[in-house]
Amino acid sequence: MERSLIMCGSGGQGILLGGSLALVAAFSEGKKVTWLPSYGAEKRGGLSYCAVVISDEEIMSPVLGLVEYIIGLDTIGFNVYKGSISKGGVFIINSSLIKDGKSLSGCKVVELPISDIAKDVGSNRVVNMVSLGVYAALSKAVKLDSLKTGLEEVMSSRHKDMIAMNIKALERGYIEGGGK
């Protein structure tokens, strides 16, 4: 089965890091994976997104049309990708920043104040990890443990001291998403 995820928001929210953690974690579980980022001119504050595909079989398209899961971390990403959710797909919405999540139809909308939860965990910077925890709990496309283990690989050495807080954020998101 092919699972698809788009993580979107703006530069500085750790979108690319979050997506690559999903990639590394799924790969560690023996899955086929692809990760395609936005790139180039986008810097802090501009649109940032990445597309992750996780599958048991050969992945044909790393480019996604309608997506099974979308994590929208702010309005910039939400406005661009709100039309990309598949029928019956799941839109995980950071309701701390996105106020019109209700406008979506034909998909399951999970609204959580992800920025506030991140601050509660310790820093707004772990907003990406909270959302990934929620994703792991809802989609079961990747295991919480794999995400936690994968942090070591994706975090640059100068941020290693942040690993503990990132693990806390993943765990908290996982619980917020209904995981046990």
Binding site: S20, L23, F27, K32, V33, T34, W35, L36, P37, Y39, I59, P62, V63
Partner: peptide, 10 residues
């Protein structure tokens, strides 16, 4: 192309 250059795969 840019897609293959930027994407990550095993």
């Amino acid at each position: 192309d840019g897609i293959l250059g930027q994407m990550i795969e095993p």
